[in-house]
Amino acid sequence: MKALRLYLWLVLIQVRSQMQYRVGFLLETLSVALGSIISFVTLALVLQKFEGIAGWSLGEVAFLFALVELSFGLMDMIFSGFDPDYFAAHTRQGTLDQYLLRPVSLTLQIFGSQFILRRLGRIFQGTLILVYAVQLVNIEWTVGKILYLPLVIAGMVLFFGGLFMLGATITFWTVERIEAVNILTYGGTELMSYPMTIYQDWMRRFFTYIVPAIFLNYYPSLYFLDRPDPFNMPFVVRFIAPVVGLGVFLAAYVFWRFGVRYYQSTGS
């Protein structure tokens, strides 16, 4: 309980100090939203011209796209403190020490150390496109689908959050942030915006068995859109998104704890 209150307090501080630079905040929110809109408009124009991709209509691809955008935007805001770009500064400058000197969990403090509100731009944008996509494809909503949708989003937040945590932890060893992690995070959102059938087999296998991205957006979307599974996996894999997300997050968390212990044994 205390932890939750403290977290909210720390987040509130972040939000308040970001609101102090109002023009900058608005412009940055705008730029984030704009980037997301432009990617989508490009996609929409091209899909219209080519009449869909791999048998998926514009609306269906927009659904995939929006779900990832929305989830990644949420994650990017909540996990801002673990964003390797920001976190690398901690390991480089040794500012982690000040958190370790306080009698509160380090993980909680890192969560509370950054809360980038301008990511709202992306969340807002994702929601808008999701609404548009749902209009286009006429999803047959059932109770199951309505209940499952937030769980899928939560699963993706945990999945991408885990990747952020992984990227942050690696900086304990490398000091500099590793740009290659961006392949999984930012590259992951791009990958997950399209039906998985378009990728070569080795790539799809990688994102099934090594980094299980396929279960987070593609398979749940097959369920929402009532599409058949071209890869003939068991039906149940449409519903494991939250479990997979949680699993990735927990694995990353264990690695993070290990990294913190390593940091304490080597110092900066």
Binding site: I13, R16, S17, Q20, T95, D97, Q98, L100, L101, R102, P103, V104, S105
Partner: peptide, 21 residues
């Protein structure tokens, strides 16, 4: 966590306070 409850620390050139508060 138990340990740091009973100690105070000041590192001269680095603040532990919140920058914008």
């Amino acid at each position: 966590e138990e340990h740091v409850k009973s100690l105070g620390a000041v590192f001269g050139f680095r603040s532990t306070l919140w920058w914008d508060l």
